[in-house]
Design a protein around this nucleic acid. Structure first.
Length: 476
RNA sequence: CGGGGCGUAGCGCAGCCCGGUUAGCGCGCCUGCUUUGGGAGCAGGAAGUCGUGAGUUCGAAUCUCACCGCCCCGACCA
């Protein structure tokens, strides 16, 4: 049925690329590892931006913009940070035909340029907090790239906040993690686990990294967003101090948090099927497409007139489109809009006109229903919500039925390969045991739950005491 | 960086092994007519530096050498 799209069961990774091509989201560019985000893909990003930006502003943040170029010396100021990012930076050595005195790094993230700037802005506690977000592009010279999931250049938002106390910074870190969790669940219909990264997995330069993790349809984990408590690491590296109410001078506390165009990859891998993209209604740039089906010009006119009448007060309330192109037949149109993931299709032909009905077709389940044109908009709005919650429930059920507890390492090694999934295992906290996970199973500790059940147990690797289980999975 | 694959019309490919008129095919595109409830049919038409450079040859998409680029799988990572 779906020509040109590889089945998930045949080749998951080919399927992923086929869905992107079929939905016309993006394509490879002349530069290795970089992509052109096409209008359909960019519209998704705009939806993500729109909702997140609103949520950031509601929590007191403002937008600003910092430069693309970072003097190399700035990037090198925070020891862990430079170690983490130096290998994957692009460096500009020439400008205006001349060799630069100091090379400029194309930002892989903006902590350094921002903290060198915050230093000038902060003198006293009255200057705090600073709650800034920026929407930007960043460049990381990755060895292997995949459209949306990992590209050399990608779009993201990065929040960078400055606080007077450690408590406040921690609160901010958790607040933004919660924003991400809420966004993922309510808009992306993506059930996520939240937790803390291990020392090995945390952001270079952070004290603690928190994350949201979701399960894709191939049962691999995908980190969808991170929120970092940076402590005083960057303040110390950039000498950013402030005077508190009592006149005491201290270093400023920092956080940073971000999500990227990778979320579009997550969206595809969570919800789409062998027919193509499936977009959760709340993020769908186009929610309804109406396809009139005519046999002659007379039909056509009648149908279009009736559609006009039905939709006359829809403008501004719902995004919809009437596909009245005459050079494509209905079947072709059904298929095209299916590939693009439009949540609801309305079929409307002479039979429907006669029976005073329209046919609604859900993209997620392909379920068809004939309904009355009276109260149609309300009916559609309800259906969109049903689709949204249905998509979330199915994704959650899939995740839950593929998440297991495991206490034996040999058994774990087998099960992570087949059938795969998420595994809650006991871990003593030793990085040596963590490294052994990776070497022997190719799985990593995705997160340590923050408020998970405390449960006495034995480390699955070394057998030493463990206080709680951690989430382990293969990941993107 | 290792392994694999590919580069010929907008897209997908055949042709190459075994050199020889005008480089084909499918889809798409343009024109017209007929169609239209799950990817329409017929007729006509436009469209190509065969990745780049050098070499062999009377003659190269095809043989030789070098180079460039991209994709997929692994090691690094959001």
């Amino acid at each position: 049925m779906a020509k040109g799209i590889t089945k998930r069961s045949d080749d998951y990774s080919r399927w992923y690329l086929d869905v992107i091509a079929a939905a016309d989201l993006a394509e490879h560019s002349a530069v290795k590892g970089c992509m052109v985000i096409k209008p359909n893909g960019y519209a998704l990003w705009e939806q993500i931006q729109g909702q997140l930006d609103r949520m950031f502003k509601e929590t007191g943040h403002v937008n600003a913009y910092f430069p693309l170029f970072i003097p190399q010396s700035l990037l090198q100021k925070e020891a862990e940070h430079v170690e983490g990012f130096a290998p994957e930076t692009a460096v500009v050595t020439h400008g205006g035909g001349k060799k630069l005195e100091e090379p400029l790094v194309v930002r892989p993230t903006s902590e350094t340029i921002i903290w060198s700037t915050y230093k000038k802005w902060i003198q006293s506690y009255r200057d705090l907090p600073i709650l800034i977000n920026q929407w930007a592009n960043v460049v990381r010279w990755e060895m292997r790239t995949r459209l949306f999931l990992r590209t050399t250049e990608f779009l993201w938002q990065e929040g960078h906040t400055a606080h007077a106390t450690a408590e406040e910074a921690q609160q901010e870190t958790l607040q933004m993690l919660d924003v991400y969790r809420t966004f993922a669940q309510e808009y992306m219909a993506a059930p996520v686990y939240i937790g803390v990264k291990t020392e090995a997995e945390k952001f270079a330069g952070a004290v603690k990294t928190y994350c949201i993790e979701a399960m894709m349809q191939d049962k691999k984990a995908l980190q969808g967003g991170t929120s970092h408590n940076l402590g005083q690491n960057f303040a110390k590296a950039f000498d950013v101090t402030f005077q508190d109410e009592d006149g005491k001078v201290d270093y400023v506390y920092a956080t940073s948090w971000g999500v990227s165009t990778r979320l579009i990859g997550a969206l595809i891998m969570m919800h789409s099927d062998d027919k193509g993209l499936v977009i959760p209604p709340r993020l769908a740039p186009l929610k309804v497409v109406i396809i009139p089906i005519w046999r002659n010009d007379e039909d056509r006119e009648k149908l279009l007139a009736k559609i006009n009448e039905m939709t006359k007060d829809w403008k501004g309330r719902i995004s919809f489109k009437v596909d009245d192109r005459d050079n494509y037949r209905p079947g072709w149109k059904f298929n095209q809009w299916e590939k693009q993931g439009i949540p609801i299709r309305i079929e409307f032909g002479p039979k429907d006109l006669e029976n005073n009905q329209v046919v609604l077709v859900r993209r997620d389940t392909s379920e068809k229903s004939a309904v009355s044109p009276d109260g149609l908009l309300e009916r559609i709005e309800r259906l969109l919500e049903e689709i949204q919650t249905g998509m979330f429930s199915r994704a959650k059920e899939f995740r839950d039925t593929n998440t297991f507890k495991e206490d034996d390492f040999d058994s774990f090694k087998k099960r992570i390969e087949n059938p795969g999934g998420f595994f809650w295992v006991h871990w003593c906290g030793d990085p040596v045991c963590e490294a052994k996970f990776q070497e022997t199973s190719k799985a990593t500790i995705r997160l340590i739950p923050m408020d998970g059940d405390k449960e006495e147990g034995k480390c699955i690797i070394c057998g030493k005491k463990s206080e709680q289980r951690v989430l382990v999975a293969k990941s993107y």
